[in-house]
Design a protein around this nucleic acid. Structure first.
Lengths: 341, 341
DNA sequence: AATTCTTGCTTCATCGATTGAGCAAGCGTG
DNA sequence: CACGCTTGCTCAATCGATGAAGCAAGAATT
């Protein structure tokens, strides 16, 4: 019961002894190329039976040390707290396994230090390829990988040194902004300058989304109010605080809002409920990201759903093509039909 | 640029040659116990400088093969599509790293085959301990681990052969049911038999929650209607379909519902909106699980939030204690204050 | 001056799986 | 019956890091 370490784990040498054969034969049988190595099916069956009986499990470390390819693919991901990253991780694992790769994923909480640390660790595990998802400094990671002779790709946020697969943030944002403005007109009687909230001004996605936001305003003949662009970060509390600050500065909060992530939307919704500044039936909201419950919130919130399967398909295409060219592939997000009012 | 495989990765032998010393010295310096091995700080600095310059990265496979302990801790998890499992994974990674362990997590989509496959793979990676989260057949996994001399623990769903850390489903459910019943009385004028929907009848958590559900009904003098217990699985579509079927059987859907997960709640909410059978202002809902947007749904949905930090704290306590006794630790879930009506 | 101690390294076996090379036995062919 | 060919295996080097054991040179002690 309290045995600290039971009898050492079974190795191919143990099996060889039990089967009265050599470790070499055991290895060949267990990794499936015993036909190539001309092992008789009699011996093969015997070895497999004994392995089964002994509950043999391969020592991957030993196996990988010897083999030239690890078949491990690594991914770093910022958070697990929303549907976007959750579905990326889930589908990535699936697609990796379908290709005979073993996925190792690690979460870095948007912390640049942890990102580098995690990348270094994954490299130690001999990943063949590293996907940096939503990394704060993707090029740093690409450089580390390059030094180790390992391929890397960026997902969600682009870098300058490796291929990147991202959403078409500009087009998605422009369309989302259009819809919010039109909803304003329909529900409030007139289009008015929207509030933009969430994200980091320094990140590519946010700045592209702001560009789309401006473009849609221009197209529809609405002037953007600069003080209404609040790139306060992603955390819910930051969005709440940004709205508080805006109110403190004496600005009437806009009735239409472009929220830059579901996580920021949490903060926005809390602020709306708490502050009582706005009756949320008069609010016109849109969110760049998707969550099933948001649909049900009943404010007719428009959402842009990033095309995760489409993006991962591209990622694996690039991996399989072997290309390292630092292109940026933009995948159009899905914009569901207009919500219930 | 297009070099398929750049010059082999740098090893300690390369560094030794560059530094004019032995691989052994390089190893000692780089893994930090060079003082113990009496390497001069001069040489140590030189080696570290060269390692830095060459972008050396340890080959973990080689290192692990030689060392006795892997410091790898594995976890299998069913899904990433809700806050509960998302926070388990995120916090688990954090706590593992804080203890000097390297976490490898893999998602099994509630597929028993994949669970076994994943466990086998993690064992190959020489995990020192494997946490089976919400596993459909935890004992099978414990047996596999035991055969390899590896510790295992169950999280979220209990097993009979290894220590298990789970929520106190019975007490949580009883309290949640009470609250829903009392909300019924307050809002509809009278307590009436609730609908129970979601989960698998065969899983321990669901049956314990049903027990608490019954108990609360009894305490409050309400009879449970057996046909109102719908353990239809977790997926949203299954909950939708179960409600459709119930309606087809001619039963008026209850006005009060106990929903067994946020994922089932998605289906329930969709059905409510779609079917129009019930005006959702007259609906009294409770959900065994937590999601920030559900709070904002505005139906005054009661939620039970499972105490993820509390559960993981227990998990690591058990790991550190070294105990293998198949106890079941029940962690009380958090029941937030009553929601806005 | 002879002995022991200390310092600062190097040598080498080892972890477990893989695989090219090699070998012995049996078979077929001329 | 001598030759090559096939079959069915074994041998031994190897992957890269680790650490016990050992060794040489200088310092300290008797």
């Amino acid at each position: 019961m309290t045995q600290v370490r039971q009898t050492k784990r079974t190795t191919i040498y143990d099996l060889a002894e039990l089967a009265g054969t050599s470790a070499s034969a055991v290895s060949a049988v267990l990794n499936g190329n015993w036909k190539k190595r001309r092992i008789s099916s009699q011996l093969a069956e015997k070895i497999m039976r004994i392995a089964e009986e002994q509950g043999y499990a391969l020592n991957m470390q030993a196996s990988l040390l010897r083999r030239e390819k690890s078949h491990i693919i690594g991914m770093i991901v910022p958070k697990y707290d929303n549907r976007y990253f959750g579905s990326i991780v889930e589908l990535f694992e699936d697609m990796a396994r379908a290709r005979g790769l073993f996925p190792i994923i690690t979460c870095t909480r948007r912390d640049p230090e942890l990102e580098v640390e995690a990348a270094r660790t994954l490299l130690s595990y001999q990943v063949e390829c590293l996907i940096a998802t939503g990394a704060t400094d993707p090029d740093r990671i690409t450089e580390m990988c390059a030094a180790a002779g390992v391929r890397s790709l960026n997902l969600d946020l682009p870098g300058a040194l490796a291929p990147s697969v991202i959403s078409d943030n500009f087009a998605g944002s422009r369309e989302l902004t259009r819809r919010i403005l039109l909803n304003c007109e329909r529900r409030l009687g007139r289009k008015e300058s929207l509030l933009f909230i969430g994200g980091r001004g320094s990140d590519h996605n946010t700045s592209e989304r702001i560009r789309g936001f401006r473009e849609a305003h221009t197209e529809l003949g609405v002037a953007v109010q600069e003080e209404n662009i609040l790139t306060c970060g992603y955390a819910p509390e930051k969005a709440e605080k940004a709205l508080d600050d805006l109110a403190l500065r004496g600005n009437a909060p806009a009735k239409g809002m472009f929220v830059n992530s579901t996580i920021s939307l949490e903060g926005v919704m809390r602020w709306i409920r708490r502050s009582g500044h706005l009756d949320d039936r008069n609010l016109v909201l849109g969110c760049f990201d998707w969550d099933p419950f948001v649909t049900l919130l009943g404010n007719g919130i428009e959402m842009v759903r990033q095309d995760v399967p489409g993006m991962l398909k591209k990622v694996f295409e690039i991996i399989e093509s072997g290309s390292n060219k630092p292109v940026v592939i933009q995948v159009p997000p899905l914009i569901p039909d207009a919500q219930n009012i």
